[in-house]
Amino acid sequence: MSLRRVWVLFNSRNKEFYRDPGSLGWIFIFPIVMVIGFGYLFKVGESSTFKVAVVQTQFESSTFEEVAIPSLEEALKKLEFHALDLVIAPNDYYINESSPKSKLAEAVFLKETLPLVSEKTKHIIPGQRVTYVDWLFPGIIATNVLWMALWGVGWVIVRQRKIGVLKRLKASPVKPVEYLAAQALSRMVVMAFSGVFVFALGHLIRPFHTEGSYLTLFFIYMLGCFALSSIGLVAAARLDNEELVNGILNFMTYPMMFLSEVWFSLEGSPEWVKQTAHVMPLWHMVKGMREVMSEGATLAQLSPHIAVLAGIGIFCLFLGGYLFRWTKD
């Protein structure tokens, strides 16, 4: 393997990327839109009405916004993640002690229901220090990466094969592994910038609580980028049809997005769904980032996620290299 050839191809791919206003814009405008949406979400989350779930009982009040949730378990989960401020059950009520708003809601609730309160027993559940928005943020960053890695590597290679760039390279001394490494590396640099950019922008809108080290967070993020880019290499190994690779990438993306707890928790899902999620690199990436941000996980504590992500990345890199053909025939 010649590092000079990797460097030459890496540079040319970088130039192609930053000279294309479309893809450059997409990488930066898309996260801005997401972060603004995210800011809106945050605002809604911080609204002045108290959100209360009334489970299997009656309760009416003008001070509270009632949220319909049939099961107590689900309501408590939401309370834990600050999506609710109070949960009222027939004989109990629940608050999140780490949420000031929840405590305030309790005070209002107690005042409004003074005559009934003797019948209800107070319970305190240990709250997470993260809100839903904090919980969601790594998911947003990871979704962004999912598209960038799979399309930025997979689709680009297929297009280059289709228009004949790869045929030209085949006639040169370039080895497949050099070309593939250059493609994946160039994309990882873009993803590194984009990740830092989105994180900083999100932080400007609303400072996050990051319990663990930023370096650890960046490491698990980049490892996720590596694993997803390698999957892109496998998808692009032989095809020369952009529509087909588009379909295949979509086919891979959607299950991964739904099963990786990007937007919602899989708590309460059947066991097989949870087990399936554990083979998804995106799940390990999101979970790992959440553990660093909310629990301050160290590299050692992240080792299961690191092992899976590195394993998938290295395996797919070799598989992609093995399956790779410059031209279709």
Partner: peptide
Amino acid sequence: ETALLPRLTARECLEVFSGLY
């Protein structure tokens, strides 16, 4: 029929290809 790496100038194309040898 061939295509070159996209969005490069003629000089850069030459630099890339000669850089491979």
